[in-house]
């Protein structure tokens, strides 16, 4: 999340004027037959084009899940790559239906920009990357360190807050882009590199010897990343919100894209409610009753989505950590479908 400070000022200024001007998003989506989804212009593991020229990633898969729920076809999504600067404007102007561009949920964005965050697809937080041979085991031992970071982002503020709160000396060496920053760190211009932990995992791949570096265990900021919709369209808000809940519930109940068809025959009432063989929960959302089944069948549950894009088997190798289910000591928790 390269949250340029100016984003606030700019998006704030225009945020107020476009709210509520749109017709019901669900009707629009149904009539045009696809979902327009705002993603990043390239963030490893969250939204990036693969070799075949298709968008892949956690944020991308989430949009596909919404398409599966609403239109019954996960492929009916069109992606608009957006920079951090213009993402909110694009949502407000109705250019996109969902913004799924690892955007941090904060009170200022949720309230004054005329946006609604529908949940948290990824719990991120700012961390530190450091050379093993520095023999530092805790961020609290970083006094006097030089820190590489990107200019104009909240990462820079977070570092300042952290070092000041712990009364430590430090020196910031800031660069304009992530690529410059990691190159500077790699060439030894600074002791520590800091950005969000998902970003650290991605940037680490660009180091000459990734194994010579470790990520410190401290997390110095809360970065709950989630999809965003426009204020004032509660029906669409509910659909997007419950898409994520269905994926998390699906993982909890062990429903995957592979066994979804068998689960249709399940006798477990909780499973029956989620795959739509019992109850009419889709009607309340204004979509088909098999909505959750389509999500789980075509895109998969939250765990599958995570493992496929950022999990231990991908180059990013991010452990579930805080993103594990609540039953496994993580934070991913969804209200029940009943």
């Amino acid at each position: 999340m390269k949250r340029l400070i100016s984003t606030f000022a700019f998006a704030g200024a225009f945020g107020l004027c476009a709210v509520g001007a749109q017709a019901a998003t669900l009707d629009q989506v149904k009539s045009k037959g696809f979902i327009q989804c705002g993603v990043s212009q390239g963030l490893p593991g969250f939204s990036n084009p693969n070799d075949k020229g298709e968008w892949t990633g956690l944020d991308v898969d989430f949009c596909r899940a919404v398409a599966a729920a609403v239109l019954g076809d996960a492929s009916k999504v069109k992606f608009t790559p957006l920079s951090a600067k213009d993402r909110f404007t694009a949502l407000q102007s109705g250019d996109i239906d969902i913004l799924s561009r690892n955007t941090t949920w904060t009170i200022s964005r949720d309230t004054s920009l005329g946006l609604n965050f529908t949940g948290v697809t990824y719990y991120d937080g700012q961390g530190f990357l450091i050379r093993k041979d520095k023999n530092v085991n805790s961020a609290l031992e970083l006094s006097g360190a030089s820190v590489c970071t990107q200019t104009g982002t909240t990462t820079e503020q977070n570092v300042a807050d952290f070092f000041r709160a712990n009364k430590m000396e430090y020196e910031v060496i800031a660069f304009a882009t992530a690529d410059e920053t990691i190159k500077a760190y790699d060439s030894g211009r600074c002791d520590v590199y800091t950005t969000d932990r998902s970003g650290l995992a991605a940037e680490r791949l660009k180091l000459t010897n990734p194994d010579d570096h470790i990520v410190l265990s401290e997390i110095i900021s809360k970065e709950p990343l989630g999809p965003v919709v426009r204020h004032g369209d509660d029906q669409w808000f509910d659909i997007v919100k419950w898409t994520l809940f269905a994926q998390v519930n699906g993982e909890e109940l062990g429903i995957t894209s592979k066994n979804a068809d068998e689960m249709l025959k399940s006798e477990n009432p909780e499973v029956k409610r989620i795959v739509g063989t019992e109850g009419k929960f889709g009607e309340g959302l204004g979509i088909g009753n098999d909505w959750a089944f389509q999500i789980l069948k075509q895109v998969g549950n939250y765990g599958e989505m995570y493992d496929r894009n950022v999990g231990p088997d991908t180059p990013l190798k991010l452990a579930r950590g805080t993103n594990a289910l609540w039953t496994k000591g993580g934070l991913q928790y969804a209200p029940p479908i009943r």
């Binding site: 212009q41 390239g42 963030l43 490893p44 593991g45 990036n48 084009p49 693969n50 070799d51 790559p81 690529d179 190159k183 790699d186 991605a202 791949l205 660009k206 180091l207 000459t208 991908t314 180059p315 990013l316």
Partner: peptide, 16 residues
């Protein structure tokens, strides 16, 4: 090209 840089399958020190 910039979008291609972000593919984790090709993230190396020399890609850029």
């Amino acid at each position: 090209l910039r979008a291609a840089f972000t593919d984790p399958n090709w993230a190396t020190p020399v890609t850029l």
